[in-house]
Design a protein around this nucleic acid. Structure first.
Length: 287
DNA sequence: GGAGATGTTTCAAG
DNA sequence: GCTTGAAACATCTC
C-alpha cells in the first residue's frame, strides 16, 4: 500500500515519540526484514539512543538517533539513522510502552513512554542502519522539490525515449514516492494512455500533473489538520487514513464496473509495465 | 484452492 | 549499453 502520502503518515505516527530514549528493542530476528542488517545490530546500536527526528523521501523513511552515552555537546556527531522501507504491506504505528508484539511485528522499539512498531506480514519491507551524517545525499529530487525542474524532467525523458509513461512514473529514480495508484492517477489526469512512449510526452504537462497528484495525495491522505496523531478522536499513534475524493480515479479504479469520474465510460484494465493498470479508454485512448 | 496484491531486486532476453 | 518482462520474496484476502 504505502506510497508517498502513506509513507508520510507512517513517519508522523513514530515522530510523536521524538525526544524519548530507546530502552529495549524486540524483534523477530530471522525474518526477511533483516536481510540488509541483522536484528542484533539494530538492537545493539539503538538501545540507549535518543530519538531525535525523522524524514521521508519518496517511499523511504529515515529515523535519526543520538547514540547512547554521547555527551550532549557531542551528540550532533554521534548520530545514527534507522532507514526503513515499508515494501508492499509494511506499516508503522505507535502504542503504549507495555505493547505486546503481535505475530508480524518484526521490530518494536520500546521507548520511555511509547512503543514504536514496524509490522509487515509480507516481509517485503527492509531496514538498515546508517552512520553517515546524511545517508540520503545521493537521492534524486522529489517531485515536489524545487530541484524537480522542467529541465530535470526533460533530461529524463530524453534519456529514455522508448520507456512507457507508466514505467517511467513507477521508477523511483525518476518519480520518488509515486506507486501504482498514483501513476494511474497521473496518466488519467494527463489524458494519456499509460503505455505511451516517453518521447511522445509533453514534459511541462507531465511535471505539472505529477506535482498536482503528489500535492493532492498529501493533502487528502495525510493533511496535518486531518491526520495528526490523536486528532479526530483516534487513539494516539493510530493511523488516520483518508482517501482522495470521488473526482479522483483512485475511488473507481478497483471497483467492478468502475467508471471514469469525468466521462462515465467504463474503465479498462490490463497489465502495463508489469503492474495492474486502470485507465479510461475514452479520455486516454491507446495510440 | 487459486489468483492477485498501491514494491523492489535480480536476472535473462531482446 | 539500454530496455523490457518475468520471477522471486511471504502472507493475506477475495
Amino acid at each position: 500500500m504505502p506510497e508517498l502520502a502513506e509513507v508520510e503518515l507512517a513517519r508522523r505516527s513514530w515522530s510523536a515519540a521524538t525526544g524519548q530514549v530507546v530502552r529495549a528493542v524486540a524483534s523477530h530476528p530471522r525474518t526477511r526484514i533483516f536481510r540488509d542488517c541483522p536484528a542484533r545490530t539494530i538492537a545493539r546500536r539503538l538501545t540507549g539512543a535518543t530519538f531525535t527526528g525523522s524524514r521521508a523521501h519518496g517511499k523511504r523513511l529515515l529515523f535519526s538517533f543520538a547514540a547512547a552515552g554521547a555527551p550532549a555537546r557531542k551528540r550532533r556527531r554521534d548520530v545514527l539513522h534507522l532507514e526503513l522501507h515499508l515494501g508492499m504491506a509494511g506499516r508503522l504505528f505507535a502504542d503504549g510502552p507495555a505493547y505486546a508484539p503481535d505475530k508480524h511485528d518484526h521490530l518494536v522499539l520500546g521507548l520511555t513512554e511509547a512503543a514504536l512498531v514496524f509490522s509487515d506480514y509480507r516481509q517485503f519491507g527492509r531496514l538498515a542502519i546508517h552512520d553517515d551524517a546524511d545517508p540520503w545525499a545521493h537521492l534524486p529530487p522529489q517531485v515536489l522539490d524545487p530541484a524537480f525542474t522542467l529541465r530535470h524532467l526533460t533530461a529524463i525523458l530524453d534519456r529514455h525515449p522508448n520507456k512507457n509513461l507508466k514505467g517511467l512514473l513507477l521508477d523511483q529514480a525518476f518519480f520518488p514516492g509515486i506507486g501504482n495508484w498514483m501513476a494511474d492517477e497521473v496518466c488519467w489526469r494527463l489524458g494519456v494512455f499509460p503505455g505511451v512512449a516517453a518521447r511522445r510526452l509533453d514534459p511541462a504537462a507531465l511535471r505539472r500533473v505529477a506535482r498536482q497528484v503528489c500535492r493532492g495525495a498529501l493533502h487528502h491522505v495525510a493533511d496535518k489538520n486531518h491526520a495528526r496523531n490523536g486528532a479526530d478522536g483516534f487513539a494516539p499513534g493510530s493511523y488516520v487514513h483518508r482517501v482522495p475524493p470521488r473526482a479522483w480515479l483512485f475511488q473507481h479504479r478497483w471497483k467492478p464496473g468502475g467508471a471514469c469520474p469525468r466521462c462515465r465510460t467504463g474503465l479498462s484494465r490490463a497489465t502495463v509495465a508489469s503492474r495492474t493498470t486502470a485507465w479510461c479508454p475514452a479520455c486516454q485512448p491507446p495510440m
